[in-house]
Amino acid sequence: MRRAILISLLAALLQTGVSAQTETHVDFFAGVDLSYRDIHWNKLMEVLVNVTPGVRMRLGDSWQLAGQVIVPVYNDYGEYYSKVRLGIVSVAKEFQFGSNHLKLSGGMFSGERYGLDAKWMLPVNSWLAFDAQLGLTGRWSPQLGEGSLPDRLTGWGGARIWLDRWATEGRIRAGRFIYADWGVIGEGYRHFKHCSVGAFGQWGNKGGLGAGFKVIVLLPPYKRTDRTVNVRPASSFLLSHNVMADSYSLRMYNTDPEENEREGVFRKAEWGPYSLGR
């Protein structure tokens, strides 16, 4: 089963050759990754601040190369997080079949995962869409230089509802996540002009009930000039807070350094929050 999925994903990735090199655009960007944990009653917060410079090459014909480096600048989390290391290196290709959007990615993803990944979305109408993700990954720790074989099958399926009048999105998805736990996540987002605010509730077979909130702030400049080479800040800042301080339950990796719930993963999708623009 895993071998069949691996072969299918690789075949689809390689099916289309890299063409139209003249359309290549390169973006250099840098953001700040703020993590904090509140797991001690007698300590205010433990904070980890990383600068995350990255690069994205849009190669034409919907191919893309992306990379990101993690540079710690403040660390209460311990020695393990103190090294400069690779965050993401991925190659991706987007497809569109009718209303279906498909993105295949391969490489090193966030969350110390590497392997292959497929994301799919089908907007049914202006207010309903279905989406899913399927991945076959292993763990790779750049700090330790060790990992595991890419034999973990993860994936989820879900549905999204978009209420245009209130710029509000409801989302539910269920599946298997990177720590081999099963569960369901319900999310609601209110999208504003340059900011999205959401709350989530979840249940996992290992972590139980959980809840939290997310804030996604789009960073200026809001109007970008698409030159061949662009140097800019990261597109957004994401704050995610889990009130149970649970950083393991129902976690998934990102295949793109700038992936978030506001801007999505499909460049051509114009559904729901992705139609709002920056």
Binding site: D38, H40, W41, N42, K43, L44, V243
Partner: peptide
């Protein structure tokens, strides 16, 4: 709270704790 209240403790007392609510 005492600093490192649940650990060995340092003897220092300060604003090392918090109450949080929604």
């Amino acid at each position: 709270r005492g600093q490192n209240y649940f650990g060995e403790g340092t003897g220092n007392v300060g604003y090392y704790g918090k109450d949080r609510y929604i």
